[in-house]
Each structure stands twice: as C-alpha cells, then as structure tokens.
C-alpha cells in the first residue's frame, strides 16, 4: 500500500519535473517576445528626440544637402547651440520659462496644500461639494476657456505680459495638485492629528510639523506635476503673448526661429532639445515619486 503510493508519487514528481522544463522554455519565449516588442516601441518612441539631436548637431549646409543620409551627422558641430545661447532671445525665453514655472509652482503648492489640509481634515460648510468641484475643474481643458480669459487678461491690462501667465496657469495646476494632496493627507491616520493635538500643536503647527513632512512624497509629486504643466503650456502664451521678449520657450522657439518661410532647422532642434532637458532631468531623477503620486491621484479618492 505504502509502496504503491510511493511509486505514484515518484511518477508525478518526474512528470512535474518535465513540465517545469517546458514552463521555463515558454517563459523564455515570452521574455524574448517582450524584448522584441520593447525594442520596436523604444525605437518608435525615441525616434523624434534622437532625430532632434542629430539635426541639432548639423550645420545649415549639411541639413540643406539632400544627397546625404539625414540620419547621419557627417561633420558634427555645436554651432547651433552656441548661436542660440549667444544671440537672439533664446536665453531670455529660457529665463521667462523659469520665472513663470517657479512662480506657478510656488503659488500652486501654497494654495493646494492649504486647501487640501482644510478639505481633508477640517471640513466646513460646503467642503464636500468643493472637493468634487476641484476634481471637475481638473477635467476642464485649457481650450475651453482661453477666449474669455483672453478678454479678461486684456481687460485688466495684462495682455502681452509674462505675469499674466503666472496669474492663469494655476487654473491648470491647482485642481490636480489639490486632488493629489487631499489623497495623501487623507491617508494619514487620524490618530496622528489627535496625538499632535494632545502634544499641544495648533492647526498650523500640525500642518507644518506633521502633515507636510509626512506627505512629502505627495508634495514632491504635486510639485513635479505643476512644473511639467507650467513648463509645457503652449496655448496660453500663444494666445496672450506677442512680443518676443515676453515669450516663454514653447512659443519663443517657433516665433523667433521661423521667419516667413525660412526654417533654421538646426537651431530649432537645438532649442527644442534644450527646452525638453529640464523635464527630462526631473523625470530621470524623480520618476518614481511622480508616477506614484499620479497613479494614486488618478485612482484613489
């Protein structure tokens, strides 16, 4: 009896052993397929930025030469970068972008942290409605309201003024940042407030010494979001800024480097690449925080 059961046990064991082998082979096939798919998409996804780099290293003559392979740089030069950084308004646009983004990020974080603390912890009449309202405003695209905003900006005399951007970008950043922060603050256990209350903290101390440090990952994610949106915004500066010295990078490159029908492609690509660099650097270092915050914000309350 026991011998028989041992024998069948042995048989199944060897059968599973063979199966394990085939599972391993299948897994390897799946993995190879995965890498092939990845390679295809990485090529597709990285093609434009790589081509940006290639073109930016070419002289105008080489770009205009139709006989060569456009994917190869025969005589690399930094001329385009050098000219951008020494002549014209590119540096000014860069500075404008930095000013606008820095101000918008700061304003956004102050507004949304205060509001999120208030909405997630203190509650007042209508706070529930406001929390929902915050989410709905996040879904309002900038193309819906830029025309009345154009009139309003003109009405208060801020047309063609860089600071108008600082005033209106928060409509795009504040709702989502508040939403992320509400989520992070709500995940802080209630007992922590109570402990702080008993330890003698008032509401501002509670926010400053407990909530902000504890929710730092969320704050970082919200900051990156605000940075990304402000840095990339195109419609508002396109509609509200006309003179070159007021422009930011996204509109400045196009407006300054395209004169009528002459495209200075080498410089355009160099300028575009440098404009893309700050967000690329931020993501290279802080990607995980941002993704965690973004997915949490989009999936949770």
């Amino acid at each position: 009896m026991s011998g028989a059961s041992f024998a069948t046990g042995g048989a199944t064991a060897s059968a599973t052993y063979q199966k394990v082998g085939s599972i391993r082979a299948e897994r390897r096939r799946v993995l190879i397929g995965a890498y092939i798919a990845l390679a295809v998409f990485v090529v597709f996804f990285l093609l434009p930025p790589v081509y940006m780099l290639i073109t930016s290293l070419k002289s105008s003559a080489e770009i205009a030469d139709l006989s060569g392979n456009p994917w190869i740089v025969t005589r690399p030069t930094l001329q385009n970068y050098w000219e951008l950084l020494t002549e014209g308004n590119y540096l000014l646009h860069f500075r404008n972008s930095i000013i606008v983004t820095a101000c918008v990020v700061a304003i956004t974080m102050v507004i949304s942290i205060l509001a999120a603390f208030s909405l997630s912890r203190m509650r007042f009449w209508g706070s529930g409605v406001l929390a929902t309202g915050v989410f709905l405003t996040y879904l309002v695209p900038e193309t819906l309201l830029f025309i009345p905003l154009f009139q309003i900006i003109g009405g208060i005399g801020m047309y063609n003024n860089l600071w108008a951007m600082v005033l209106i970008y928060p409509t795009l950043t504040v709702p989502f940042c508040t939403w992320i922060m509400i989520g992070y603050f709500s995940s802080i256990p209630k007992e922590l407030d109570e402990a702080a209350l008993i330890d003698g903290a008032n509401h501002f101390q509670m926010l400053w010494k407990i909530f902000i440090p504890v929710a730092l990952p969320g704050i970082l994610a919200a900051t990156i979001f605000a940075f990304t949106v402000s840095w990339a915004q195109f419609l508002y500066p396109m509609a509200f800024l006309v003179s070159s010295e007021q422009m930011v990078l996204t509109t400045g490159i196009v407006s300054d480097l395209i004169r009528g029908d002459t495209f200075v492609w080498g410089k355009i690509m160099a300028g575009a690449l440098m404009a893309a660099l700050p967000p690329l650097l931020v993501y290279a270092f802080l990607m995980d925080y941002y993704i965690a915050g973004l997915t949490a914000g989009a999936t949770k309350g």
Binding site: E191, L192, A195, I198, D199, N202, I210
Partner: peptide
C-alpha cells in the same frame, strides 16, 4: 478646554508615532 491644555497624555492603538521624526523627536515633540 482643548486637549493641549488639559495636561493629559494619550497612547493610541496604532501608536500614532510621527513617522518622519526619530524616537527622540517623537518623545520631545510635546
């Protein structure tokens, strides 16, 4: 009288330790 002025101390079920502070800072906070 609000909790901070009642001169009481409380230990919570989930401890409610401040996660960003060291043990010393946690104890010293109040």
């Amino acid at each position: 009288i609000p909790p901070r002025d009642r001169d009481i101390a409380m230990v919570f079920q989930n401890y409610a330790l401040y996660p960003h502070m060291t043990v010393f800072e946690n104890m010293a906070f109040g």
